[in-house]
Write a protein that binds this DNA or RNA. Structure first.
Length: 377
RNA sequence: GGGGGUGCGCCGGAGUUGGAGAGCCGGGCCAGACUGUAAAUCUGGUGACUCUGUCUGAAUAGGUUCGAAUCCUAUCACCCCCA
């Protein structure tokens, strides 16, 4: 089983710090989980994830891993942990996000979703049951229910209808999951997902329904899809007030450093986002001093370290001018250094948040930090 | 030394066979975007100015013409061939 142990509660906010124990080890919360869609956190090898970035859990994606390498290879390998050499916890998304991001090449029915592959155009039918089967094959410690992540903006009637579908799919996911055993002899757990777009009544109704399934943790989806940050915080707050306090809460796809800090204050324990890695590849770096676009001309002759006081040895070693040069030449090492840097920053940030929750001064630290991480250098 | 050819914007290419060019495609450069990854991607800008517009502009200087990037002359630069 999954255990969640809350060790500290903040004084001035709803933040909490604790541990989640899975089949592949214990995670300290609040935590940021690097995204590794295809079984790789882009540009970072597993050893660096562990030793430099100090990641505790990474993501994989059902849709992408099903298309390539496919479940047959994954099962022959003995699951994703064995396949990619990451022996710590893994969480897999169900393909629900692709219902949103690939909306122009999929068709939704009550039974499931037909995707037209972005690779070769072939058609693939995903049902809640199939999403569970694939995630059994991948073997993530935490697997997600198959849902529809709605777009923003989203009409009320569509949001309500979609939420109902996500709830019915959740029932099917749970029934199938509880019936079908793990393939590799270790425990997996299924997280349900709250939907309801940006409508308060729908979010409350969805959170109540999701909580009634009494799974070991709960996730919040359908946010950070283009809505204003204030709206995201409002929905997160409303949902956190309904979801049980003694179970982990996972806010899917969030977010910027500021988003993460604000949502920790609302009671979120787990986050994932592609921003630190994607932005790294595109030259946007999060540092102790603020945000920098390393490709900008102003860093051309700046030979000071990327992040002189940062947590990452690599970003203290290489200079801004050198990284800028690498990015301009599209050298692979540039993307690697930048990814290592941004992920180190994210993991450092949630680590600091944990410390300040334990110290009871999270709220005031958070307010100062939010200003800092939004500064543009 | 003789003959032939080619010259435009940061670079390369296309194109202009006397009739509307601050104009096309790449690249570079300068910015911006990116939130459960169709993303080492995408978008915009890249002569000047007093900037909803105006001016200058086809190697340089002249000339012919109603009109010249296009034709003529000279000069300069580069390329090719002959000696």
């Amino acid at each position: 089983m999954l255990t969640f142990n809350i060790e500290h509660k903040d004084v001035g906010s709803k933040a909490r710090a604790g541990t989640i124990t899975t089949a592949h080890g214990t995670i300290q919360t609040p935590i940021f989980m690097p995204v590794g869609t295809l079984g790789t956190v882009k540009g970072v090898q597993q050893r660096d994830l562990e030793e430099v970035i100090k990641a505790q859990i990474i993501l994989g994606n059902t849709y992408h891993l099903y298309l390539r390498p496919g479940t047959e290879i994954l099962e022959k390998a003995g699951g994703l942990h064995r396949f990619n050499g990451w022996d710590k916890p893994i969480l897999t998304d169900s393909g629900g996000y692709q219902v949103y991001s690939l909306s122009h090449r999929r068709k939704i029915t009550e039974e499931g979703v037909t995707f037209q592959s972005h690779i070769d155009g072939s058609k693939h039918f995903f049902t809640p049951e199939k999403a569970i089967d694939i995630q059994r094959s991948i073997g993530g410690d935490i697997i997600m229910a198959f849902d529809e992540c709605t777009p923003y903006p989203c009409e009320y009637n569509y949001a309500k209808k979609s939420m109902g579908l996500t709830h019915r799919w959740l029932k099917r996911c749970c029934e199938h999951f509880d019936k079908e055993p793990s393939l590799y002899g270790y425990y997996q757990t299924l997280f349900p997902i709250v939907q309801g777009s940006t409508y308060k009544d729908l979010r409350i109704a969805s959170a109540e329904t999701i909580a009634s399934f009494e799974r070991e943790a709960n996730a919040i989806g359908g946010l950070s899809v283009g809505e204003p940050a204030e709206e995201m915080y409002e929905m997160t707050d409303i949902v956190c007030n309904v979801l049980p306090k003694d179970k982990p809460r996972y806010l899917m796809g969030v977010g910027t450093p500021a988003n993460i800090l604000e949502c920790i204050a609302l009671g979120i324990d787990m986050f994932d986002c592609v921003l630190p890695t994607r932005n790294a590849r595109h030259g946007l770096l999060y540092t102790q001093e603020g945000i920098i676009n390393i490709k900008n001309a102003k860093w051309k002759e700046d030979f000071s370290p990327i992040d002189p006081n940062g947590p990452c040895e690599t970003s203290r070693f290489y200079s801004k001018a050198y990284l800028r040069h690498l990015m301009h030449c599209k050298e692979l090492l540039g993307a690697q250094i930048a990814s290592l840097h941004n992920l180190s920053f994210y993991l450092w940030l949630v680590g600091e948040a944990r410390k300040h929750i334990a110290a009871g001064d999270f709220a005031s630290w958070k307010d100062a930090m939010v200003k800092k991480v939004q500064t543009r250098l």
